[in-house]
């Protein structure tokens, strides 16, 4: 994809850096959203009554975050190629969203 007139094409390592930043932020964001959805729509049994369960929800939330974060990272890489400034701005916004989501979920919806 050719770079737009907005800014020249970024070096490969910068585009990869933007992609990894977006992917990492997405993991926390997705993790928090899934946890809240689970708590609201699919509440678990009382942990005091559950002896054991075969699957740890925390790992599943993380790996779903990695899966979706990978896709978002690819999208961020493509955006960084076409419109670098927009990519950098959106990455900043995404990290803010991620910080707010994981902090509020972690405290309010354990």
């Amino acid at each position: 994809m050719p770079a737009t007139a907005e800014a020249p094409t970024l070096p490969l390592r910068v585009r990869i850096g933007i992609a990894i930043t977006s992917a990492s932020a997405t993991i926390a964001l997705v993790y928090a959203v899934i946890r809240v959805v689970q708590a609201v729509f699919y509440p678990e049994g009382d942990p005091a009554l559950v002896v054991w369960s075969p699957r740890a929800a925390m790992f599943w939330r993380f790996w779903i975050g990695v899966y979706i974060g990978g896709g978002i990272g690819l999208g961020a890489y493509a955006l960084a190629t076409r419109a670098p400034l927009h990519a950098a701005r959106w990455t900043y916004v995404l990290v803010w969203a991620s910080v707010i989501a994981i902090t509020s979920q972690g405290i309010l919806v354990p």
Binding site: I27, G65, S98
Partner: peptide, 12 residues
């Protein structure tokens, strides 16, 4: 939850 957040944000 918060520990996982710390790790992925450090990577970001």
């Amino acid at each position: 939850h918060l520990g996982l957040g710390a790790i992925v944000l450090a990577w970001a």
